[in-house]
Computed example of a mutant assay.
Amino acid sequence: MRHSGLGISSFIISTAIGVLMFLLFVIAGVLETSTPGGMDENSVEAMLVGLFLIAFLLMDLVALGLGVGGLFQRDRRKVFAVLGVVFSVGTVAITLLFLLIGMMA
């Protein structure tokens, strides 16, 4: 049996988005700590961080959809589809947890 093409693309996208999301959080942390008094909410940097966060979350939802589609393909291996779904759900959950913690602080 061959691997699912949808599963492979889901795995690649979710892995890439996970790495990019981590880098985005590092960049946001550096911007927050390097600015006296914290980052201004109306600054261009804050808006770019928010824009990239939304774009990455949407791409992660695309990866989740591809992974679910890969799970329903017949006569295909489902390893990469399962990994793509797990990584996508994990990335979305961790991101939403970080956002919740940030809003509470």
Rank of each mutant, 00 (worst) to 15 (best):
M1Q: 09
R2G: 05
R2L: 04
R2E: 14
L6C: 03
L6N: 12
L6R: 07
L6Y: 00
L6A: 10
L6T: 08
G7W: 07
S9V: 00
S9E: 15
S10H: 13
I13L: 15
S14G: 03
S14Y: 05
T15A: 15
I17E: 00
I17G: 00
G18Y: 04
V19R: 00
L20H: 00
M21F: 02
M21C: 01
M21E: 03
F22I: 00
L23P: 01
L23Y: 07
L24A: 11
L24F: 10
L24Y: 10
V30I: 14
V30M: 12
L31I: 13
E32Q: 14
E32L: 06
T33C: 10
S34N: 12
S34D: 15
S34G: 02
S34I: 13
T35H: 01
T35N: 09
P36V: 11
G38K: 08
G38P: 11
G38Y: 10
D40E: 11
D40S: 09
N42P: 02
N42M: 09
N42G: 14
N42L: 15
S43F: 05
V44K: 10
A46W: 11
A46E: 07
M47P: 06
V49Q: 05
G50D: 14
F52E: 08
L53K: 09
L53I: 13
I54R: 07
A55N: 02
F56Y: 08
L58N: 06
L58P: 08
M59Y: 06
M59H: 04
V62K: 13
A63P: 01
A63F: 03
G65H: 08
G67L: 07
G67P: 07
V68R: 00
V68M: 13
G69N: 08
G70K: 00
L71E: 12
L71R: 06
F72L: 15
F72T: 10
F72D: 15
Q73A: 07
Q73Y: 01
R76M: 06
R76Q: 10
R76V: 10
R77E: 11
F80D: 09
A81K: 05
V82S: 12
L83T: 01
V86L: 15
V86D: 05
S88Q: 12
S88L: 05
S88T: 06
V89R: 01
G90Y: 02
G90T: 02
G90E: 04
G90D: 10
V92F: 12
V92S: 12
I94K: 01
I94M: 08
I94L: 14
L96Q: 10
L96R: 01
L97G: 01
F98P: 01
F98L: 05
L99Q: 01
I101R: 05
G102L: 02
M103H: 14
M103E: 13
M104C: 04
M104E: 13
A105M: 06
A105I: 04
